[in-house]
Structure formats: structure tokens, C-alpha cells
Design a binder for these strands. Structure first.
Lengths: 337, 337
DNA sequence: CTGAAAGCGCTAACAT
DNA sequence: ATGTTAGCGCTTTCAG
């Protein structure tokens, strides 16, 4: 309540009549101190309002207990959700989250340098990918790096994703079973591995069912672009009777255009399926069928990889399956629920 | 590409054949170094891949260039938006954002200690409020603290809010002008100053127009609770013909229930107005009339207060006005657009 | 303008 | 179990 300047461990030591290192030990979890010492120091510390200076500790241990997290736009509800889970989980593990935004590779590179400067204990990359040089720099400096839902050329880096290929494929199966014939796809940003994997799975699934893609437009993981893509896709005589959208955020735009602009009935005239299963998807206003990305499990795996890096260089690719959540935006084939 | 261990300023100094302090100067913005020295050191540093250790620098300068930010739930889209703006702005100013989640006063208190331990240069509190002791501790330690859309008992702390009272009042004016008679209010968490101010403004506005509140329920700034509150409010014979909801996030729940569960026509049978004007509000699926909180301006003010604290202790309360965004969820009186 | 020297607050051997 | 002693990597007087 009445401390003026910073109070250091030396102040506490003097007050308690012990050595400065004794104070340090009391505040170090795995140290050996007598109960009496513990008592004396604690009370002196309390009185002075002492708290260890984490910065000084970091300098010497080389551990900051800070994890750098890089995310892209936060408008897509999936990422705030992930951020929240990450933050809670890291806090629970005694780590802290230094947050950065980056929306381009050059942003990412710049930001990565700044993160490294903070001597972070690890980095989670959940935005645009980065070039291999920086990734290698991390490796050389011994900073664990986990890619969250991104991939990178060099396959040896730890990465956690949902099973995007399987998810895309599952949507194709749904459309096939529902008897859809004119099937459209609205793609995300083509530099993203999630986009590529989802589309590949979807196309393979269609092919396996003897179907092929009827229309394709690019939405770049952006709501406005997806809306424009939808207008394009539906500006023809024969319109699609089912559309798979590469993520929920775009799918909301698609639904907005379909329902409110083109006055089409969903799923009566056209089925729509998204990807992520963000909380919004289950709101009545959208009622969007979507492939779930199990954010909690993905976050758990990410943190596990970061905090105890895999001994074997083999198992550094974690792929987590996600269910298809059936809702009202897509025709549901008989026997599917 | 080939650095193995940490490279320090001493390594650079040796390589360049200069003193270690010379290296330090070259990497310190306001230092005096000759062009030749600059050259020598820069190239040696480049070759070795040297970057100053920010932690060591912080220890000595007492400045970490880290700002602690505490937020609550990220589900309400307003906060991810604010976080994104904060992050970008801080990055632009050469600061970094240490993020924390806290949903209760006890959380906040715990988290505040951890933030302080990092010797942060400032704290932004955008979640639940905190007790005055901690706020005072910050003051005593000389750590600037800005409350973002929260208030605290002690009025002397810097705080940035939108004009919640005026906003609430404006909504009352809208309802009055539109001729609504049975007016409901769905309240947010009653511990929040935003809730209190919005409601007070709203009630005062109604009174000024000779109206009074017809129904009131508690939604606690939570979508599910707001949905339940709506069911309650509309489970009577005479239902409201207009509802003001204390924030957009709850308003989406209200709209979901009204439109999809109770099959009421909005705004034909009931007008709905929210608060925040999050991006979602303007999506066709909701088309929600809402009082805008000018996030960018609020963030700018917050950062300004943090980085150059007001000299005069008077002007530490910034209240930013926000427009009422007229959309399709509420009847628009003649001459209002 | 540059170098030498003294720490920032703490942890980690090393003795005792 | 406790005290003593060296630094961690850097900034900052202070001389020259």
C-alpha cells in the first residue's frame, strides 16, 4: 500500500536478516529452505510488498515464460476462440502470451524477429505462414515453433491441424448422399494449406461418388469476397444446388446473399456447408452445417508440443479429426442422423 | 543461417574490433556514434546475426516496452475487434501486447499481479474491474493504468468509454419518435458501468418523452441468458413492441428467439436495438440497429493516455460519443434518415 | 566520439 | 540448509 520505489530481494534480505540468495531460494519452487527461513522471508516480503522481478530472472535462466502467438485477422470467429483457449491454457501452465498480428508473409517475418528478441520460450504461428529461413533461425536458437493450422515447405516443423482433407471429403459424401447434382465450391486463400487440403478432400470425395465440380469461385477467406463470389456463381441460368464454402466466416456471407439478396430457400433450393463450426454457426440466424475444428483439442496438442517437444522427430505432425455437424442449412440424406 | 548459440554484443564488439559499449550505442536510437563506427558494427552484427537482448535492456532501463492487456470473454465480437486495434496500434508504437483473460474480480486481481511482475510499461483493463488496492499499487509503482469501458470506485483513474448515457438516451428518443408504447429493456451484467449508464440514459430518455418502461429482464451480457430473458418477456398476453438490448451480442440472441422461435416480425411487430455496432450487426442476417462504439477512437485515446499520461489530473476521463446506426431491425420514424 | 567500469535484480554453483 | 561469489547481456556514467 505504501511502497514508493521498487523493492528488491536485497531489501527483503536485510529486513529478514538473511542473505539475498536465501530470499531467492524462498521464491524458487524447487529449492531447499527450512520452515523457519521460509517464514521469516515470507513475512518480510509481505510487509515490503516484494515480488520477484521476472525480467531479471529471465535474464539469468534464459527462460521468459512467455510464448509468442501470431494471429491474422480476428474477424473470423475461429481465431478469437483459439486465442482465448490458448491464453487460458498458457496461464494455467504458468506461461504468458505475447500477442502479435500479421496478415502477410512480410508482416510475419518482421514480427517473428520482434518475438525472438523477447527471448520467448516458444512461438505459435496461427496466421500467415513464414519463410523457411526464419523457421530455421528458430530451430538454431532452440526456440520451439508450432504451426497452428498452417503448413510450411519444410516438413520437419511441428504442426497441428485438423483433418482438413477428411473434412472436405466428408462434405462431398454428404452432398452425394443427398442427391445433389450441381455442386459448387467457394475457395479460401489459395496460399493456405487448409484451403488446399479441404478442396482436395472435397474433390476426391466427389470423384469417388462419380460426381464432379459444377462451379468454383474464389473467396479468399474473406466475407465480402465470398459474397461477390456467390453473386457470380448464381448469376447463371442453371444455378448450383449445393455449395461447400471453405470456412464458416465466408459461409455466413454466402448465406446472407443467398437468403436475403437472391431470396433463395436454404436448403430447399440450395444446400450450404461451411468449415470450422464456430459458435455463430449454431445460432438460429444461420443454422449452418459445418465441419467442426476441435479447437480445444488442437490447442491442447499445440501446447503439449511446445512445452515438451517430441523426442522423436517422427511424431511432430498432429492431425485431429473433426465431426460434420448437421444443421438446417443443408439437405440431410436419409439415415444420416 | 548458421548461428548456434546466442550471440551477444561482446561477440560483435570483438569481431568489429571495438568496445562492447560501442556496440550498445549503435543499437541505441539516441546515441552519438561516428558513421565509420556505425558501419563497422552494423556489418559485424549482420554477419553474426546479432540482435540486442530486449530482456537485458529492460532490466537496466526499467522499461519493457510491454503493455499488459486484460480482457474478458472474447465471444462478444466487440472485444476481438478492440484487441486487434490495440495490437496493431501498440506494434506501430514499438510496444508489445501481453494478453490476459479474466472473467471475475478475483481473476483480475491475480492476473494483475502477474502483469506487474513483468515490469510492464502500462496496463489496459478491458475486462471485469478490479479492486482499488491493486489500482493503487499500480499508481504507487508508477505503472500507468487505463480502464477501457469500465469504471472503478476511485474516480481519479484514467478511463476511456463511449458515451453510454447519451447512447441509451438516443435509443429512447428513437422509440418515442416511432410511437412505440410497450417498451422493454434487456439489461447487461449489473456490476458493469456500461450497463448502468446505458440503462440510466435510456430511462431518462423515456421519461423525457413521457414514457415508462413496460418490461425489464436481465441478460448479463450473455447470449443464452438474453434468449431466456426474451422468452420470459414475451410469455405474456401483451408483449412489448420495442426492445432495447444492452449490447449487440445479447441482441443477436434476442433476434434469434424473436424471429425463429416466436416467429415474430421484426420490426413489424417488435423493434430491436442493440449497442456496440459490431461488424455482425450490419450483416443481412441481423440487420441490427445499434449504437456505435467507435472502437478505433477509443483505442487511440487509450493508447495516448497510456503513453503520454495526462499532466493535469483533471482530464483523465475520456468519453467518446457514438452514432445510432439505423438499420432494419427497428421502425424508423419519419424524417430520421 | 570512444573505452573502461559499474551495476540493473536475480540465479546458480560453490563452499561451509 | 545457508552464505559467498560470479555472472546473465545490456545501458550508462565517467574519463580521455
Amino acid at each position: 500500500m505504501n511502497e514508493k520505489r521498487k523493492v528488491t530481494s536485497l531489501d527483503v534480505a536485510r529486513k529478514a536478516g538473511v542473505s539475498q540468495s536465501a530470499v531467492s531460494r524462498v521464491f524458487t519452487p524447487g529449492a531447499s529452505v527450512s520452515a523457519k527461513m521460509q517464514e521469516k522471508v515470507q513475512s518480510a516480503a509481505m510487509e515490503l510488498g516484494y515480488r520477484p522481478n521476472v525480467i531479471a530472472r529471465s535474464l539469468i535462466t534464459g527462460q521468459s515464460r512467455i510464448i509468442g502467438v501470431v494471429v491474422g485477422y480476428l474477424e473470423n470467429q475461429f481465431y478469437p476462440g483459439v486465442l482465448e483457449l490458448l491464453s487460458n491454457s498458457l496461464q494455467a501452465h504458468g506461461y504468458h502470451l505475447l500477442m502479435f498480428m500479421a496478415n502477410s508473409v512480410s508482416d510475419t517475418n518482421k514480427v517473428m524477429q520482434e518475438i525472438i528478441d523477447y527471448q520467448v520460450d516458444g512461438i505459435i504461428l496461427a496466421s500467415v505462414s513464414l519463410n523457411s529461413d526464419l523457421a530455421n533461425q528458430c530451430r538454431n536458437m532452440g526456440i520451439p515453433l508450432v504451426l497452428f493450422n498452417r503448413s510450411i515447405d519444410d516438413e520437419s516443423f511441428p504442426i497441428v491441424t485438423s483433418d482438413n482433407y477428411a473434412g472436405g471429403r466428408r462434405v462431398a459424401e454428404l452432398f452425394a448422399a443427398a442427391g445433389h447434382q450441381r455442386i459448387g465450391y467457394i475457395a479460401g486463400w489459395e496460399g493456405a494449406s487448409t484451403q488446399r487440403d479441404r478442396e482436395r478432400g472435397f474433390l476426391d470425395g466427389l470423384e469417388a461418388a462419380g460426381l464432379s465440380l459444377f462451379a468454383r469461385e474464389l473467396g479468399d477467406f474473406n466475407k465480402e469476397d465470398a459474397e461477390e463470389a456467390t453473386r457470380q456463381m448464381f448469376s447463371v441460368k442453371q444455378v448450383p444446388d449445393a455449395v461447400f464454402v471453405a470456412n464458416d466466416h465466408m459461409a455466413f456471407g454466402v448465406l446472407d446473399v443467398l437468403r436475403h439478396e437472391l431470396k433463395l430457400n436454404v436448403p430447399g433450393q440450395v444446400s450450404v456447408v461451411g468449415y470450422d463450426d464456430v459458435p455463430l454457426a449454431s445460432w438460429s440466424a444461420f443454422d449452418l452445417t459445418s465441419v467442426r475444428q476441435p479447437a480445444q483439442r488442437m490447442v491442447d496438442s499445440t501446447i503439449a508440443m511446445l512445452l515438451d517437444p517430441p523426442t522423436t522427430r517422427k511424431n511432430n505432425r498432429i492431425v485431429i479429426p473433426g465431426d460434420l455437424m448437421l444443421r438446417g442449412s443443408a439437405k440431410i440424406p436419409k439415415g444420416w442422423n
